[in-house]
Structure formats: C-alpha cells, structure tokens
Design a protein around this nucleic acid. Structure first.
Lengths: 344, 344
DNA sequence: ATCCTGAGTGTTTGCGATAACAGGAAGCCG
DNA sequence: CGGCTTCCTGTTATCGCAAACACTCAGGAT
C-alpha cells in the first residue's frame, strides 16, 4: 500500500494527521492522546498541554468513523420529515437543529416523497444505516402512527406533533387548546357560531383543531356547521372561501392555518364581504407575515422552535436510557389582530 | 468483554447481525458477503442467492462506520445553511435533499447562528468531522466568500447563490436577469422610472437584484432613485412602504422579495394609494401565496428546487474528481399578476 | 501431459479509534 | 521499611468492513 506517509513521497499531499501522529509529536502513546480528548482530567496537566499543542500543530481531527465503530455512538441524530418547505416542519427542524448544535450533535435529514407507512419506515432505515443515535419523526400524519409501530429495537425514536397512544415519546403543540381558544374568542365577540375550514383530515394537527373547535361549540350549545376541508394552501382557502362568502349566515370563520386564511380573506373581499365588519377570520400558526395580511390576521401562535427543542430533549433522555411514557405539550397563544371583530 | 453472542446469554437482546454472521449462515466467507453487496457480478449467481437469502433472514445491515473507516467514503453530504426557515434556503435544501435521496446520499445539516466567516468555517468543520463526502454551502452572503477562502484541502465544496470569483463551483439563480426582467416589465407599462426596495446589502441576492435593476434603468436612460434597504421581512417592507407611499412621484416599485412586497402593498393601501392603478409593485421569489396577495403579486419566480439539484450534481462531479471552474445558472421567470398596471 | 488463464472464493491485513487491563512511580499507612 | 493505594501512562485487543493478495479449479492452448 502506497499511502504516502509524510516525507516518503513529497509529491503526494500529506494525509490528514491521525492520533498516532499526534502521539509521536507529543512523545506519548496514542492512548494518552485519546484520553486528553475524552477524559482530560485523567491526564497530568503538563502532558495534556503537550498533547494539545501537538493537536493544534497538526490540525488533528478525530476520525468519527473509527470512533463510532468502537463506541457505537455517532453524535448524529436523524430527522424524518415530510416537506421541509412547509412553515411548521421547517421551523421545527430549525429548532431541533439549534438544540442539537448546542449539544454538539449533528442532524441528518431524511425527507419523504410521500406520507405513508412504507416511506416513513424507509426514512428511519436510511438514517439507521448511518448509525444515528436516535431519530425524530416530524410527520404529523396518521400514517406516522403505523410507521412507528414496528420500530427496530434499540433505536430511540421521538415523534413531533403526533397523536395520542403512539409507542414513542411525543412533543407537540396543544392543537386542541389552540383551536378552543380561537373559537372562544370568536364566540366572545358575539358570533352565534363559528365555521371551520380545516386541513386535510389525515393530518393530526388538522383533526386536533377540528376537535378543539367542535368541543367549544358543543360546550356552549351552538350550532355546529359541517367543517370544510382544505389542503393547507392559500389556493384551497380561496376556493373554499368563495363558497363560504356566499352564505349570509357566516360571520365567523376559524381557518386551520394562516395560508388558507389568506385565501379566505381574499375570497371574502372579492365577494364584497368586509373583514372584520361582516365576517371575522382567525388563522393558525402566526407565520411572520400574518401581521401584514389585509387585514392583519388574528391567529394562534405555535412555538415550533420550542417544540423542536423539547423533542430533542426527549430524544437525549431516551438515548441516555430513560424509558417511560412522555408527552411534552407546548401551549399555543392567541394573537388578536384586526381580522376579528364583534358580530354584525 | 461479554458482548452476548446469540445463545450465549439468552437474557440479552441479540446483537444486530454482522457480516460474519451472514457468511456463516450462507456457508461462505465474509469476503464473499462483502462482494455480493458491493460487486455482485463477481460472485456466482447461486452463491449470491444463498448470501442474499441469509442477508434477508438475519435482516443484516452493513455498518456504515466500518465501511467509512476502510473506504474513506460515507455517502453523506453536508449542507451549511444560515436559516432553514427562510423560503429560499428551505426550498433549496429541499431540492438538495431530494436529489440526494435519488442518489442514495444522506444529508446532514449544519445551521449557523450568524452569518460570518468564523461560523461558516465552523459549520464546515463540524460536517467534516463527520466524514461527509462533500459540502454544499447555502449562505448567499458576502461573508460566505471569506469563509470559502481557506478550505481544508481535499474536501469538495459547492456554493449556492454565491457571487462571482468564488474558489468553488456555484449554482445560483440569475438574480441580475430576474431583476432586469422585472424592471423592464414596469418600464414597458409606461412608468418613467422604477423605485427599488432591496434586501440587506451584504446578501448576494440583494446586490444582484440591485445591479440588474440599475442596469436596465441606466440602459434606458431613466432617473435612478436611491434604493431603499429592507431586511427581507414584511415588517420592513411595511415601514419603508409607508415612506414611499408619501412620495407622489412613485408609480412603480420593484421589491426584492415577496414578503417585503406584502408589507409594501399594505402600506400603499393604508395610505390610500391603489395598486395597480396608482402604483405598480413587483416582488421576487414567487412564494406559493403570492397569487393570493391583495392584489395578486406580479413577481419573479425562482426555481430553488432546480438550484438544489444543480448544486448536488456539481458536488457529485467534484467528489468524482472532476475539477474545473463551474457555474450553473438557473433562469428566473417573470410571473405577471395584478399588482402591475400601466402608468397613471 | 504441461502450462496458462481467469473466474470464483478464501486469508490476511489494516483502517483509526477506544476499552480493558497492565505496569511503574509516588505517596501513605502502620 | 514493606505493602497498599492512587495517579498516570502504556500495551493489547477489538469494533466491522474491504483491499490486496493467495489459492483452487475448470477449460484451452501448446
């Protein structure tokens, strides 16, 4: 093997330094170098200093593959994620990544071309084959539950935004509470009841919001209109908004996310119904632009970053061997702006 | 070491199968198993079948750390990214991830708490320490250029959205062309000149758009107003929009992204200036919601997914050892909607 | 028959790190 | 002063895989 040790063949670029090189330069054994890096207190300060000097001089970096091979831990965590361009998942991912960085973890992502059991399983497998220490699944969809049934044993997994009775810990925003808050706000303004434009029914967030909305109407004894179903896009909000706009009885609409709410706002305006004078609208998410919608949108703020951090913490616990059911709920917050007003 | 070989200690969970286990079950040597996985044509079909059967039976998965250690390739690529919640970076990341998945690569991300040389270098270092095969830097900011000066030798790096004369290949949208298109569109509607609300000056995209806008105005001999500077947010668009709205001479505004344009639209409306009758507005990005702004926004569509794919391809080439300057430009497209109209 | 070829398979070695144990020097005790 | 910690450092084995090389055996060429 002609690997070109330094000085042997001056033409070749010098290989990156390995632990043995550092050891030699510092006049110690490789084991001592390893100790300086992993348990500095076990090495005499002056030896340590010599080693660290050698590390710097050679710009030595431990080879993670070798380390993983022997320790079984990689310092990498995997995130399985459906669509990283959606506001929620992207923000959650960002929160996870920040928390991971602070704990010296690296994040690998496996995005899914479609949301179903098969792809989720494949995503987890792809990550596992790279020896991740654990996996966070960001796929708030019913199919995630199935995908999480038969997990490979020994792999810590945490879910974000998932429903109840998942076999893994879950970090999530309390959709039910958020929807209830939005609905109560509208009722408190004098509206007789509240219409709902929901997200796709298989999404956990969507069904949680429907449940929260329905529960408040039930508790208050109000008429419960059939919820309309959108697909999270402004386009679907617009199409469905046009139908709602034609119903004179509609004075308050709780929309399952801000983008659809934007479409609804436009549909109402085009139909000549004023917001909030004729119709009040509440969204969900509080995307950064919501305050600049026309009119500024009353909405429910979700702290996705916090969810990401909680999920990461749960995963760390799990990696450390802490078992047990765990569910971290993050409370959403109603942000009142100008798209809601008293009932006409 | 008591590692609990299967059958030795029935209480322990069986270790995951390794190559030797597969070899034993198939009645061959470990090397043959390795060959079946990496160079199947070198193994007799019937042997191969026996091995594959054993692989399936044991649910064997190669240990990537061991493979990396001996081959020096990991099948992982790193992405250094500033803020994965911004529309552009998120979409680019998504494009990269999809392309990577199709080529059996995994993507690790290192996000940056701030955009400067030090953090970019650190991000690359973090990824390198995990033996990624290459790195894509998504940080269309001047500081990226500095961060890319002293790269560790031997690590393939590709930049996304970067400016000229970077020492690495670049995939990017042609910001200059997009801005020029937007500006010409406004002039063609009869406006005497076009104001510009730009992004932060250190962002490559921002300066590219300023240059494209200015160049068209110069070529046409129009007055060139001093560009105003925002920070990409709807909020800044709103604040600056209010100033512009008070200037009666302003009839056409080219805004450097859609979110700021949204703020501008609201500011104009609040000031009583109609869009497009009194003022025309063009954005940049074509976020999915742009068609539902009020009024629907004329804007410049950037195909971020395509940029991501191009970047990935460039990186693959680089990993394969293909040297040489490379710059892949993706053409943006003007999407005309209702926020632009003939000069009043 | 002898040699050669090449396809198919096995053996040995080493990638770069850490775990486990071993050893040597200093300090402390009775 | 012998023996026993305690602290520090070195030696050896090992993680799971693939590269390099060695070997076997059939079929042709000589």
């Amino acid at each position: 093997m002609t690997k070109g040790r330094p000085g042997e063949n001056p033409a070749e670029r010098p290989r990156a330094a390995v632990m043995e090189d550092v050891a030699e330069l510092a006049g110690v054994s490789a084991m001592t170098v390893s100790r300086v890096l992993n348990a500095p207190e076990k090495v005499r300060p002056e030896t340590r200093a010599r080693v660290l000097a050698a590390v710097r001089e050679l710009d030595y970096r431990p080879n993670s593959a070798a380390r993983v091979l022997v320790t079984g831990r990689s310092g990498v965590l995997g995130v399985v994620c459906f669509d990283t361009t959606l506001y929620g998942p992207a923000s959650t991912l960002f929160g996870i990544e920040q928390a991971a960085r602070d704990s010296d973890y690296l994040v690998s992502i496996a995005s899914l071309p479609a949301l179903n059991r098969r792809w989720i399983t494949r995503g987890i497998d792809r990550l596992r084959s790279q020896s991740v220490d654990g996996v966070i699944v960001v796929a708030p969809h019913e199919s995630a539950a199935e995908g999480l049934r038969n997990l490979p044993p020994g792999l810590p997994v945490v879910d974000v935004g998932g429903g109840a009775d998942l076999p893994v810990p879950v970090a999530a925003v309390d959709q039910f509470a958020g929807a209830a808050r939005a609905t109560r706000h509208l009722l408190s303004l004098g509206h007789r009841t509240v219409w709902h434009l929901s997200g796709p029914p298989n999404w956990i967030d969507a069904s949680g919001r429907v449940a929260g909305w329905r529960s408040v109407l039930e508790a208050e004894g109000r008429e419960i209109p059939e919820p309309l179903v959108g697909d999270w896009t402004a386009h679907s909000g617009y199409e469905i908004g046009k139908r709602l706009a034609r119903e004179p009885g509609v004075t308050a609409i709780f929309v399952a996310n801000d983008h659809m709410a934007m479409g609804v706002l436009r549909a109402l305006r085009e139909t000549g119904r004023r917001v909030p004078e004729d119709v009040s609208v509440v969204g969900f998410d509080d995307v950064p632009e919501a305050a600049y919608f026309w009119p500024p949108l009353t909405t429910v703020r979700q702290n996705f970053g916090e969810v990401g951090r909680q999920a990461f913490q749960l995963l760390l616990d799990r990696i450390a061997g802490m078992e047990g059911e765990a569910r971290r709920m993050v409370e959403p917050e109603l942000v009142v702006r100008e798209s809601t007003g008293v009932s006409p």
